[in-house]
């Protein structure tokens, strides 16, 4: 772990955001396995340090756009468990009234401009939010989260070029979990560091250990400061791992085909960001373990309450299919 001089309060903030994501996602995985959730689900487990580290450097009025693996971003930005879980159940009380689902959760009140089912689909929108902040003369910033797969989309290159040319306050955060769906990133690009591509747009390209929240946070804070001060975008590449697969239940539709080496799976387990930060906090004696235990219990209780909220929430009325269309 990065040796840090961050105040304990900040470290606890990072840990809380990460643990909230972890416990929520564990529950979602369980519910999916039980056949309780419709649709597709992509869990953020293993990548928590990225969303938490970046969002801890943001204000409530800053913007983010997200990916198909977006639950973690919503939670890291301050999203509400109940409305998220209800959306995953397709209920009326969900963030999108049951019209979005796992890959389309948004919370505009906290600047979360939406998860996105299209790889690379959020970069242009984040650039536009940055343009909006610049135009209105605020010092808000905008963050586009995306994966290594999106770095090979035209939208990545167009957005980085546009944002850097106009010097917009946008931070491009690449969560390099080393797999685009089931294909290793090394089979999809001729370089190993996506951050190198920043040079092509004349902006800083920064690599951080995306399993180390104490490394992600200061790197994100520096990029955010740069953007707020009007110096333009940064490409921040966080090297990380998916603890699970691409999608829950994938073993069934892959008919048992394996695509990851056992040593990779072990490496991912060994670098688990939540365990790493927990260990650091305990070893450094920053927070008494009982307090961490209480925090965990509180979060676990909130997740359970969210499931109850979702289950007891009504399904949307059929008539609502014609609502939220034209203004």
């Amino acid at each position: 772990m990065t040796v840090t001089h961050l105040p304990t309060e900040k470290i606890l903030d990072l840990y809380t955001r990460m643990l909230r994501i972890r416990r929520f996602e564990e529950m979602v995985g369980k519910l999916f396995a039980q056949g309780q959730l419709p649709g597709f689900v992509h869990l953020y487990i293993g990548e928590e340090a990225v969303g938490a580290g970046v969002c801890a450097a943001l204000r409530d009025d800053d913007y983010i756009t997200s990916t198909h693996r977006g639950h973690g971003h919503v939670i890291a930005k301050g999203g509400d468990f109940n409305r998220m879980m209800a959306e995953l159940f397709g209920r009326q009380t969900g963030y999108c009234k049951g019209k979005g689902g796992s890959m389309h959760i948004a919370d505009f009140e906290i600047g979360m401009l939406g998860a996105c089912g299209i790889v690379g689909g959020g970069l242009g929108v984040a650039t536009g939010a940055g343009l909006s902040a610049w135009y209105r003369g605020t010092d808000q910033v905008s963050v586009a989260f995306f994966g290594d797969g999106a770095a090979n989309e035209g939208s990545f290159h167009e957005a980085l070029n546009l944002a850097s040319t106009l010097k917009l306050p946008v931070i491009f955060v690449c969560e390099n979990n080393q797999y685009g769906e089931f294909t290793p990133a090394i089979h999809a690009m001729n370089i190993t560091d996506i951050a190198q591509r920043a040079a092509g747009y004349g902006i800083p390209g920064v690599i951080v250990d995306g399993t180390d929240a104490l490394a992600v946070y200061p790197a994100a804070a520096a990029a955010v400061q740069r953007a707020r001060q009007g110096h333009g975008p940064t490409l921040l590449e966080a090297k990380t791992h998916r603890r699970g697969g691409h999608a829950e239940g994938e073993i069934a539709f892959l008919a048992g085909q394996d695509y990851r080496l056992p040593e990779e799976v072990q490496a991912a387990a060994a670098s688990d960001p939540v365990i790493r930060l927990h260990t650091y906090i305990v070893e450094q004696g920053l927070i008494p373990p009982p307090q961490l235990e209480t925090l965990d219990q509180d979060i676990t209780g909130s997740v359970a309450a969210a499931v109850e909220f979702a289950r007891t929430s009504p399904e949307p009325e059929i008539a609502s299919i014609y609502e939220d269309t034209w203004v």
Binding site: Y63, G124, V125, T127, G128, A129, S132, S155, A159
Partner: peptide
């Protein structure tokens, strides 16, 4: 896409 992000904000 920037048009979308700008209009949404």
């Amino acid at each position: 896409g920037a048009g979308v992000g700008a209009a949404a904000t």
